[in-house]
C-alpha cells in the first residue's frame, strides 16, 4: 500500500472503527507471527497480540503520520509488549477471554481454532534449529532480543528496524553484531554442557 493511501486509511480509521478492521486484517497475521516467534508459545502469543491490537485500537487517535508506517507502529507496540513480558515475571496481557471473546467463539469454528494451535505446535517441533536459537535469544537482554528477532526472524532490513525501534542505524548494526557474538558464546556454552 502506498504511503498516501495508508495515511488516508489511518485518518478514516481514526474516525470510524470499521476502517480499523481493514488495517487489522492487513497486519494481524504478521504481528501474531512476530510475537509467536519471540515467545514460542501459541496461547501466550494470542494474548500478547490481543493486547497489542487493543492498545493500537485505543491509541489510534494519537497516531500521527510522521513518515513511520502503521506496520512499523504495530511492530513497535508488539516489541514493547514482548519486552514487558520478558522483563516482568507477573506480566499479564489482556487475554482474549478478558475481552469477552468467549461470547463470540461460537461464531468461529472451534475446530479451526484448535487446528491453528496444533499446527503451530507442530511447526515449532519441526523447526528444531529455530527453537534452539529462540531459546538462546530469550536469555539475552531485550535490546539484543528485539534487533535479532526483527533482523533474522522477521527478515527486516536494518533501515526498517531503525524505524520500528526508533534507533540510529549505527546502534542497530552494533547491537546485531554484538548479539551474534553472544549467540556464538551461548551456543558454545550449551554444546559444552551437552557433552
Amino acid at each position: 500500500m502506498q504511503h498516501a493511501e495508508e495515511a488516508k486509511l489511518i485518518r478514516k480509521a481514526q474516525g470510524d472503527s470499521k476502517y480499523f478492521g481493514e488495517i487489522y486484517e492487513k497486519h494481524f497475521n504478521r504481528i501474531f507471527n512476530y510475537v509467536f516467534r519471540r515467545v514460542a508459545d501459541f496461547d501466550l502469543a494470542r494474548d500478547i497480540t490481543s493486547e497489542v491490537f487493543m492498545k493500537a485500537y485505543l491509541n489510534l487517535w494519537q497516531f500521527r503520520w510522521k513518515g513511520i508506517s502503521i506496520g512499523a507502529w504495530f511492530y513497535r507496540i508488539a516489541t514493547n509488549e514482548v519486552n514487558l513480558y520478558f522483563r516482568k515475571n507477573k506480566y499479564k496481557a489482556t487475554t482474549v477471554a478478558d475481552l469477552g471473546a468467549n461470547r463470540f467463539l461460537e461464531l468461529v469454528d472451534p475446530v479451526s481454532l484448535e487446528a491453528e494451535k496444533a499446527e503451530a505446535e507442530r511447526l515449532l517441533k519441526e523447526n528444531e534449529d529455530f527453537i534452539r536459537i529462540q531459546k538462546i535469544i530469550v536469555q539475552m537482554e531485550p535490546k539484543y532480543q528485539e534487533v535479532l528477532a526483527l533482523r533474522y526472524f522477521e527478515q527486516k532490513p536494518v533501515t526498517e528496524i531503525c524505524e520500528i525501534l526508533s534507533k540510529k542505524e549505527g546502534t542497530v548494526k552494533s547491537l546485531i553484531s554484538r548479539g551474534l557474538d553472544k549467540i556464538r558464546t551461548l551456543i558454545k556454552l550449551s554444546d559444552k554442557t551437552a557433552t
Binding site: G21, N33, F104, F153
Partner: peptide, 30 residues
C-alpha cells in the same frame, strides 16, 4: 553464525480463526 541465522527455517503459522475472534470482540465494544 550470521549465515546460519540468515538461512534459519522460520515457522510461519496461520492465525485466521484467532484473528476473527479478536476482531469481532474489539470492534464490538467500541
Amino acid at each position: 553464525i550470521k549465515m546460519k541465522m540468515e538461512n534459519l527455517s522460520i515457522p510461519d503459522v496461520k492465525s485466521d480463526a484467532t484473528k476473527e475472534v479478536l476482531k469481532i470482540t474489539l470492534l464490538n465494544s467500541r
